[in-house]
Write a protein that binds this DNA or RNA. Sequence first.
DNA 1: GCGGTATGTTTACGGCGCTCACATGAGCGT
DNA 2: ACGCTCATGTGAGCGCCGTAAACATACCGC
Lengths: 188, 188
Amino acid sequence: MSTSEKSGYHHGDLRAALLTTAMRMLEAGEPFSLRAIAREAGVSPTAPYRHFADRDALESALAAQGLRDLKVDLAEGRTPPESPRDLAELAVTYVAFALRRPALFRLMFGNACDGGSEERVQAAAEIHELLRAAMVRVFPSGDAEALAAAGWALAHGLAYLHLDGKLPATSSGEVADRVRAAFAAILC
Amino acid sequence: MSTSEKSGYHHGDLRAALLTTAMRMLEAGEPFSLRAIAREAGVSPTAPYRHFADRDALESALAAQGLRDLKVDLAEGRTPPESPRDLAELAVTYVAFALRRPALFRLMFGNACDGGSEERVQAAAEIHELLRAAMVRVFPSGDAEALAAAGWALAHGLAYLHLDGKLPATSSGEVADRVRAAFAAILC
DNA sequence: GCGGTATGTTTACGGCGCTCACATGAGCGT
DNA sequence: ACGCTCATGTGAGCGCCGTAAACATACCGC
């Protein structure tokens, strides 16, 4: 059995099953615990420990997957940005991801993440890289690192402030307009 | 007894004692739980429930205090900002606060905070107001709300990205330089 | 002084992360 | 085909957590 068939005692691909179950619960807004995930996956409370060192390890795997998903959102169906307007649309995508999958977004960034997971660090670095490339493409004359930090921070801050309700936002279209307005107000 | 004298059974001012104890533990990086706070304050595990509805209520009170402290940092010993450089220094102060009291900063913003606490919402609104005033002072011709969102988001995003180690930062001086560079790279 | 009430204590419940001893069975060499 | 081995799953249990309910204490207005 290659993918997640059940055979009674042994599961087949419990690691993947736990990750998809956890991701589903995360996006359903259900409270998140190792025991609940195991329950949902139809397995004993301690089975996950055969595949993840501890709760943080599972969270890091989910965070890495989330970062990869975000990168796909940012890259797909999009021509390289040429103008500040294009950068604003990139940020709209970024914020939309955060609002569409809030618990996952918090997992992706809310932890200390001190070199915990290799794939997680890698996925984060790729996002940094993608945003830096977009910024230097629009502002070729600037300091690449400073531009990358500024652009990422602007999108990231808008995402978090909306997530935490610090900026009034009813519809998602309204949020997008606010992001565009913020970029227009501040970008050179 | 007016402030936090002990008399055996009754405490005197347990509410304030719990808050200061919790704040100290938060800044010492100690794990944070109602029971641990009660233990540290020398009181039974359920005593806090006489003063806070639940854990979230205590956290909201701490968050409100943190927001007020942040506002003081942003306002004190500072002339009204006149230039983009002054705005960058404001952001340096913002990020420095986040890195100096990381657990508190996460508490201040990491929660849903859906109208939970009156004073907390109030304190957050005052920060919004302060930053908006600073932005419109430097850019009088812009859309005030968009400027406020953009400036706050930029500082907030830089704070979070540094907190989560997404931007390399060793010394605090290095962080400050990065914040200045980001503002210089992006501000009109 | 006395009674009501605000405040603190005790006991208890269920859920959590995690450890350890044990059970199962798939894969492999022979 | 057989039996070993070891990865994988189970079960019991520890100490922690948040929270509720019943009880104890002592401050305060009458």
